[in-house]
Simulated assay, not measured.
Amino acid sequence: MEKKRQPNNTFTPIGQVLGSILDQCRSETGGGILHLVNVWEKAVGPPISENAKPFAVKGSLLLVHVSSSAWLHQLRFLKIELLEKLNHSLTNERIEDIKFKIGLI
């Protein structure tokens, strides 16, 4: 006879589940988008990281989703400074360009 599972009344945040799955799938060098998200948050700080998140990487281009057109405009002015901070925090990878796009964060 099959054993019944006890109901689980505690919820696990989806970010924690996705982080765990992405961590298992990323490359052995420790790269990937999850690594970039973590580095991004530390490199750019709270005001920016709350309104802009790395979404995808293609080669040395980083696509960042931003929360509004105002943030998109502001971050375009800060692009060079953000690239310097980000690359200073990365060990193996190098981002040469950032493209900002309004999207879900």
Rank of each mutant, 00 (worst) to 15 (best):
M1H: 08
M1R: 12
E2N: 03
E2T: 00
P7F: 05
N9R: 11
T10G: 06
T10M: 06
F11K: 07
T12N: 06
P13Y: 00
Q16C: 02
S20R: 05
D23Q: 06
D23H: 03
Q24P: 05
C25G: 10
R26I: 06
R26Y: 00
E28H: 14
G32N: 09
I33Y: 07
L34C: 15
V37N: 12
V37H: 14
W40T: 06
V44C: 11
G45V: 02
P47M: 02
P47Y: 04
S49M: 07
E50W: 14
A52E: 00
A56T: 09
K58V: 02
V64M: 13
V64Q: 07
V66Y: 05
V66P: 10
S67H: 09
S68K: 01
S68L: 01
A70T: 02
H73G: 08
L78F: 05
K79G: 01
I80M: 04
L82F: 04
L82C: 06
L83G: 05
L83P: 04
E84G: 13
S89I: 13
L90A: 12
L90K: 10
T91S: 12
N92M: 03
N92K: 12
R94G: 04
E96F: 12
D97Y: 05
I98E: 08
K99A: 09
F100D: 04
G103K: 13
G103H: 11
I105A: 07
